[in-house]
């Protein structure tokens, strides 16, 4: 479980760096986002033999930074003055998916663009994605 979590962090953090650099080249950010999703699914399938409970823990620990800043965004909790930077940090955390997020469309709902709401939900969607992919290797 610990090994899987560390692997996820290494992949995710290096995908942040690759995502930032990839955004310089037209379309490469979308390709890196798709590759990122494939790699995470592959990692999840690798962990298919681990118990569902341990996979939940792995996924939640992996997305702990995202979950923390998503909760900050929707609450008025302001630890160490982080509240005003929460959405920035949340967006940086999901840089691996930047290319796909940018395709979310230009419509706004309650004054906020769709990508804003996607960013808030992404930590939880990522956990479910990981669990879903891990589940497919158990069948």
């Amino acid at each position: 479980m610990l090994v899987n979590t560390i692997r996820l962090y290494i992949i995710h953090v290096s995908a942040i760096a690759a995502g930032i650099l990839g955004s310089y080249y037209s379309g490469l950010d979308i390709m890196t986002a798709l590759v990122y999703l494939l790699i995470i699914a592959w990692e999840a399938r690798r962990a298919g033999s681990i118990s569902f409970r341990n996979n939940i823990i792995t996924a939640c620990v992996w997305q702990a930074p995202g979950i923390f800043f998503a909760v900050l965004c929707i609450s008025s909790f302001d630890p160490m003055g982080l509240y005003e930077y929460a959405i920035f940090i949340l967006q940086f955390w999901f840089t691996p998916l930047l290319g796909l997020l940018s395709l979310a469309g230009i419509n706004s709902y309650f004054d906020k663009p769709l990508y804003y709401y996607l960013l808030i939900c992404l930590p939880f969607i990522s956990v479910l994605y990981y669990l879903g992919a891990a589940g497919t290797s158990r069948r």
Partner: peptide, 21 residues
């Protein structure tokens, strides 16, 4: 080998993109 590939893909891509940039 596949485990190592998945782990090193994005770090190597980062280095390559940084060099290109």
């Amino acid at each position: 080998r596949m485990d190592r590939f998945r782990l090193l893909l994005f770090p190597l891509l980062t280095v390559l993109l940084a060099m290109l940039l």
